[in-house]
Design a protein around this nucleic acid. Sequence first.
RNA 1: GCCCCCAUCGUCUAGCCAGGUCCAGGACAUCGGCCUUUCAAGCCGGUAACACGGGUUCGAAUCCCGUUGGGGGUACCA
Length: 469
Amino acid sequence: MTAPRVRFAPSPTGDLHVGSVRAALYNWLYARRHGGTFILRIEDTDRERSTDASTRAILEGMRWLGMEPDEGPFFQSARTELYTRRLDELLASGGAYRCWCTKEELDAKRAEAEREKRLYRYDGTCRGRSHGPSPDAPFVVRARLPQDGEVVIDDVVKGRVVLQNAQFDDLVLARQDGSPVYNFTVVVDDIDMRITHVIRGDDHLNNTPKQVHLFRLLGAATPVFAHLPMVHGPDGKKLSKRHGAASILAFRDMGYLPETMLSFLARLGWSHGDQEEFSVEELQRLFDLDAVQAGAGVFDHTKLEWLNGRRIRELAPDALLAHARPFVAAEHIDPDAAWVARAIPAVQPRARTLVELAQGLTMFADRGPVAYEPAAAEKFLTPDARALLGELADALAPVEPFDAAHVEAAFDAFLETRALKMKHVGQPCRVALVGGTVSPSLYDVMSILGRDVTLARLRAAVAWTGPAS
RNA sequence: GCCCCCAUCGUCUAGCCAGGUCCAGGACAUCGGCCUUUCAAGCCGGUAACACGGGUUCGAAUCCCGUUGGGGGUACCA
């Protein structure tokens, strides 16, 4: 087999959808797996709906995920000359013809067909016409498609699909203003770019027979087709914003790692035995089309979180911090502060997203008096406990160096001399230090806070006088 | 309406192509337990599925047909 050439061909009409990203991923992985070429093509033939912002979002999303194209990005809007040339060829060969039917006439016929509950197809009025009602009458260009017989598509994931030609219109190739239409530009470009495998969402399956005819009309061999199942939300409908998030950049902003998205999306609709987590390198080595699922899958946000948590725990603290910098800054914490580096390992096993990681850091920031959670303070900062905290502070004051191991030793000694158990001091101490009942290990908390802040917070608790009101 | 696609635990899936090794395996979630200074993490265990109906076969989750359900398409959108 010669090296495959595949493409991701999004239209820049909105956010980069995770379903699209998965299609891009499968193309990219297929290319990597088989030593092929991955091409990015922006299908912006619809001038009305295409936006620069959307193009930027596509490029940004692809870069974030590390899926850089080997060729491109190509913009269809810059390739009109090619389309015009191929259109002229088709017109000359009879593969296409001019159609002077007006939109109004066609709409009327369509409405009539609907009224009579007939299947509407273009009736071929202009198939045999050589000229219009007047020399300057506007026209569209239509493909001359076979009216009987069938097309067979041997789809890699869907299997053998047979469609009757009688169902297809003579589709429009170019609009009245001469601009080419999607189904035509796709085929022209797939030929021009020597695409060998068309891997895309199965919402395009119905377009495929028309495109197969265009390949033939243009004298080209058809590529291999692989139609991927859709990605649905929990309600079984196509995933969209109403399900929370559907844009890849939204997931980035929620604190998911790019590797998490790649591993998760790859696994949604594809599998390799029972393996649940994949590195990018493994995906590139293992991925193939034969293990792609035929049925649609539901995007399971919960499992994504679990996977991201796993990934966060695996990362080296400094690598994790590198990913988390913008999220840390968003919590008004300087990512370069020395204590941040100390705190990362402590909050790391508790975070499922980078947002949670950054939030977990806030309890260590020195921002004046600790704000106690009312219920926690009331329950644990009893007079007895507060007295103990004062003594604890005195016991801890001389610890040197003030790291987790030495703090723990001093803490144990304190407990022993007072014949106390951790459960008597633990939670009061935690509330004094971070304001609530949940935190990393106390020894870690204290060493991260440092001697001064630790002692200050402990002594502040001693002076606490009950609920403010 | 018509056309096309799909169908294993709540969810992602293994098994299906080459029928028996499957009273269906893994993972997320959930429930219970262990660990434990809290919360996580980790470990152990439980609940939970072959959509339905017909065939074919000694034997079907696996093959065939139908039904039902879901999704997609039906543009001078992509």
